[in-house]
Amino acid sequence: TGQILSFHPIRINGQKAGVICYFSKDLFDDTVERMTEQLVRLLARELYMHREEQLLRLSGRKMKPMLHVSYLKGIIEEIQRTADPGTPVKHQLNALLQLLTTATRHDEHPLREELATLKAYLSLEGTRRRPNQLTSADITVDLDIETSVEEYFVFPFLVTQLVDNALRHAFVKAGRHHRIDVRAFKSTTGWVIEVADNGQGMPFAVMQQLDQKESGDSNLFLIRRALEVTYGPAASLRVYSIIHQGTRIEVRLPFPSP
């Protein structure tokens, strides 16, 4: 045909794609090939940046919910006032109020308050007895928090989402004693939140997908993105996992500004 075909693979929104270029044989050489590779990489970057801009734009144009969280919170507060003290219903309403209070926050709050939200969440999860399915009532959650970091700020539901991820994915329906350990402590360069479980471990393919920065909709991926937006390169989320032995998620955060 007198033409040379050049194929350049790229990824768009996590999907495999590519650019096919046709060159006249007498115009094609190594310089053109290298230039084309550079243009394709630039195209892939521009597509990724465009997608990010679209997501940010759409996130600010969410539909207004028919029932706002504050409205539901007010109703539950009224019911909670009439509930008999010391009853399971009273306890559950208190836990639900804690979750709804956190859900109305848009700013960061102390780790101490985040742990109260986690305890409320675990309390409510323990009441959801689903047939043939593990709940938090079947799992020991241990907290080991240094007093020095309790007043450091985190964004709402950070620790709660990490524990929720372990509850939903780490454990099979039967087996040895199930455990989740939550730690928070100072390090030399910042402070650390760790959530570790003794579950079935994270498949290699899932860990690979988590490391692909151009796309993802898993809970851990979204937490990592939120950390990047909130703290920039000063924060990180790392996953360490061994099949049949468990998973440890490490979140490193910068010290608060003086």
Rank of each mutant, 00 (worst) to 15 (best):
P256N: 05
K173H: 06
L100F: 11
K16G: 13
G175C: 09
L67W: 14
L167R: 02
L5S: 06
D26H: 10
P85G: 00
A226P: 01
R179K: 14
G216A: 11
P9Y: 03
M49Q: 13
T230R: 11
G126P: 06
S257D: 15
L5T: 05
I242G: 00
A103T: 01
E194C: 10
Q54P: 00
A120G: 14
T82P: 03
G216W: 04
I242E: 12
A120M: 10
S236G: 14
A116Y: 02
A137I: 10
H91D: 15
K213G: 10
R183D: 11
P85C: 00
D197A: 02
L39W: 08
M35E: 13
T117P: 00
D30I: 01
K213H: 13
Q133Y: 09
A83M: 13
N132E: 13
A95N: 06
Q200D: 10
H8V: 10
A174E: 15
V141H: 05
R105N: 04
S218M: 08
A83E: 12
E78T: 13
F185D: 04
C21R: 08
L72K: 02
A174M: 11
R45A: 13
A120K: 08
R176H: 14
D181H: 09
L43K: 00
T101Q: 07
T160E: 04
Q3H: 06
E78D: 13
R224G: 09
L99Y: 02
Q54H: 04
L100I: 08
A235P: 05
F221W: 09
L100T: 06
H106I: 09
G246C: 04
H178V: 08
M202G: 03
P131L: 03
G190W: 04
L227F: 05
I10H: 00
K119A: 09
D197F: 03
R248I: 07
L124K: 11
E53S: 11
